[in-house]
Amino acid sequence: MIEQILVIFSYDFMRRAIAAGILISLCAALLGVTLVLKRYSMIGDGLSHVGFGALAVATVLNLAPLAVTIPVVIAAAFLLLRLNESGKMRGDAAIALISTSALSMGVMAISLTEGMNTDVMNYLFGSILAMSREDVYLCVALSIVVLILYGFFYNKIFAVTFDESFARATGTKASLYNMLIAILTAVTIVLGMRMMGTLLISSLIIFPALTSMRLCSRFQTVVISAAVVSVICFLAGIYVSFVYNTPAGATVVLANLFVFLVSVILGHFRHR
């Protein structure tokens, strides 16, 4: 096993992918706790579909993928929150509407060009090779920004997650922090979806939070445990995918599923 790990680290692209993956897993896990508790889990899923659409259009038009995708997904996050808060449309319906529209636009864009089938597969299910050196640098830089902002606003994020109207009534700008959460989520999703795939990235947000909520009863420990679970599952998934030559994104998701099921069993015994 140690030999294989050394082999993994001897590849330049693997080292890059692992560095970026660890940081993305951390961001996704931290934000995931808030999103799950705020009943916003589906926003992650919706945003990843918007990301797919934007990525496809950017590729067809020969534009830099991340530079186009990130602003588009942030705009979609703004829009989703607005629709949710204004109450003019039900949140889940709004997400379904926006995500399928974006997906269709992406598919249309791709169908206009020919011979992109492997790329489409990569977008949908992710590829460890999809990240160029520049992508990885951007990814590392942005993930660190997300982590710093999360740490800085941790207490406020807790207050807004636990009881938004109390926070609002005592002068915390709740909609500002909702916006912050949405922007951080949008950035994390765009960064992660190249590797994990648009269809799978939202699992990185939801699984570690659900696993940790089974086992921990304090917000702080839930957040820390989600971060740890997420990174461990990512590393395990990458290892298995390398050794058995399976798709990285799907393997990481299955590692998360396995740990979640273990936590369900443990949680069941603990609460008896």
Partner: peptide, 25 residues
């Protein structure tokens, strides 16, 4: 402010200390 009970999720993972401290925001 003490909100109506239903306004807060019953299964929220937070300690008493964390909840009370958030009142100091």
């Amino acid at each position: 402010y003490l909100p109506q009970q239903t306004a807060i999720q019953k299964d929220f993972p937070a300690s008493v200390y964390e909840v009370v401290l958030s009142g100091c925001m």
